[in-house]
Design a binder for these strands. Structure first.
Lengths: 231, 231
DNA sequence: TCAAAAGTGTTGCGCCTACACCCATGA
DNA sequence: TCATGGGTGTAGGCGCAACACTTTTGA
């Protein structure tokens, strides 16, 4: 059980790592994790081990990444790891143990075993899901402006993102809802920004693939239909 | 290690199952698989175990599905299974051992443990990937007409598919190439159909998601650009 | 000449990008 | 009033679904 726990720290995401105090790979940085217990499934196990490093309430989403089982992925004894992706919103700044720290994914220290490659797999998964799911709910604070959200997406994806189009894509999909409030402008002035929230806090596919859908269905209903037409 | 090996048998896909001769769950049907060996990774292991049931050369694609680890997914001792999806083209009709048979996924017999649920996961994965990858190469024979391919897709997806649009989608993506040959018409006559092949026999994402791409890139290059403009 | 099956032309729609333009604030 | 940042309007393009129409065969 290993977890790639990511949190967006602009301009680049960071991953939670702890420094090994013992051989093998003493001094190198490793992903949090541990052994599977006798009466838990892998999801419960990874949550239990994560609780030693961060406040679990701050981990907004967890999902399986895959199994890493190359017999030579580390020194003997042979270990098989089921890797997970965990996401922490930016407004939670967990206190972590002394041996544990956030590391920018573009400046990873020397990692233990194959944990560098697993981290890259986790980041790839996050980037893919940002495009076709509402997974941003697990990165963003409870309420935010579109500019703030754009910066989060840009940091996660590694390229610039247009606030204009981000807002339209996410509202069209029913992912974002306005709170009705506005944020105070910065010291340089400017129009106050509208404040939004994610409409749901569970993972949902918002962009089902266009091709090869069943005939006669115009497009999947990606968000609840309005109760009254015109309301 | 367990494998959901699927093969399209119109009008519905079938999955490879073997009948348990011993308790627990004697007489029920189970997915092929077995224990991980000391010096192999899970991919190698699932291939090794599959070789006991089918000719491995006929399994055109294998990928990880996920880990199933509910402590109560079966009677003690507790077992953790890494599940895989395997695909066999229709032109390969493997001979299988006496205890082993193909079963239509809409008429599964009583399955052992949670193997029914795992089978459904495998089918869901196949259906999703048919929409945005070239995974059809692992279902179709080496050469085929568009009508034959449409029937394969329709069986796999569980709904009707338009041959017209299937051809256009797959050729636009560079997935299908014409061999230049034509198939003989049926006894009722009709225009002879052009014969196609999949351009590649490795998995490739052909429909990267439209939203939130880097700015300035019109659309991902999904197939090799023509060597000379206009040719 | 007709039925059957394959393949192409064309229209319409939805989603996305890009960019021009308008709005609301602090100085 | 101007600079600054937020938000909307709109045009263009692309991919896909649907369906009419043409092509090529056997009887």
């Amino acid at each position: 059980m290993l977890a790639v726990v990511l949190r967006i720290t602009e301009p680049v995401p960071s991953v939670l790592l702890w420094q090994r105090a013992r051989d093998p790979h003493r001094g190198r940085w490793a992903l949090p994790g541990g052994r599977l217990g006798p009466d838990e499934d892998v999801e419960a196990s990874v949550r239990r081990h994560l609780a030693e490093k961060v406040d679990l309430a701050e981990v907004a989403h967890v999902e399986q990444l895959g199994v890493f089982s190359d017999p030579h992925r580390g020194p003997p004894p042979r270990r098989i790891a089921t890797a997970f992706l965990g996401l922490v919103p930016t407004d939670a700044d967990p206190t972590v143990p002394d041996d544990t720290a956030w590391h920018r994914v573009d400046r990873l220290p020397e990692t233990a075993f194959d944990h560098g490659a697993i981290t890259r797999d986790g980041l790839d998964r996050l980037r893919a899901k940002l495009s076709y799911t509402n997974i941003g709910f697990a990165l963003a604070p409870d309420a935010f402006t579109v500019s703030e959200l754009r910066d989060l997406y840009a940091a996660a994806l590694g390229h610039r993102v247009s606030a204009t189009n981000l807002q339209r894509v996410l509202t069209r999909r029913g992912v974002l809802v306005p709170t009705g409030e506005t944020a105070a402008p910065g010291p340089a002035g400017g129009r106050p920004a509208a404040v939004f929230r994610f409409s749901e806090h569970g993972l949902r596919v918002t962009d089902p693939f266009a091709a090869l859908r069943p005939p006669g269905e115009p497009a999947a209903e990606t968000h609840p239909a309005p109760t009254r037409p015109g309301s």
